[in-house]
Amino acid sequence: MQNSFFIKKKENSNADAFNSGTKKSCETVSFEPKIIGFLCNWCSYAGADKAGTAQKPYPPNVSVIRVMCSGRIDPQFILDAFQKGADGVMVLACHPGDCHYKEGNYRAVQRYRLLLKLLKQFGIEAERCRFDYVSAGEGDRFVSVINETVKAVKKLGPLKR
C-alpha cells in the first residue's frame, strides 16, 4: 500500500504538484496558514496541555495529531499533509534523553533530516517543516514554538501546488 502511495505521489510531482515553488514576497495579512502538528503523547502533547491549563493564548493555525511517540511519525505523513493542503508541518518530540520509549525521538530527528533533503527537491522550504523538542513542563516553550512557526509560514505564504 505504501509503495503505491509513493508512486502516486511521484506522478503528482511530475504533474507540477510539488515543485511549483512559492511566492516568497506574499505577505498578505489575511493569509491564515494550515499547519499540522504531530505531537508525541508523553512530552510535547503534555506540553501543549500545560500551555492550555496555564491558558496561554496562541494562534489556532496548528492542528494537532497525537501519536504515542515521535518515532511513529512516518515521513509519508508529512509528505501527505503537504500534498493535501498543509502550508506547514511540525514534529514535536521529547528532548534528547527524555523519550518515553528511550530512542524514538532520535529516529524521528534522523528521518526529519533526510526528509528535509527530499522537501527541497519538491521545492518546499525547510521553514515549512519544523522539528523541535518540547517537554511536558514546557508550556511556554510550546507557545513560542507555535508562534514562531506560524509566523515563519505566514511569511512564506501559501504552499502552491
Binding site: Q2, F5, V67, M68, G71, I73, D74, P75, D80, Y101
Partner: peptide
C-alpha cells in the same frame, strides 16, 4: 510497548500500529 517506531520504519508498510494505524492517521 506500542511506540510505533517499527511501523514508521517498515519499508513495506506491513506493520500495523494498533490504535495508530497508517489508515487512521492518514
Amino acid at each position: 510497548q506500542g511506540c510505533g517506531t517499527c511501523a514508521a520504519a517498515c519499508p513495506s508498510a506491513v506493520i500495523k500500529a494498533n490504535g495508530f494505524t497508517n489508515e487512521e492517521i492518514f
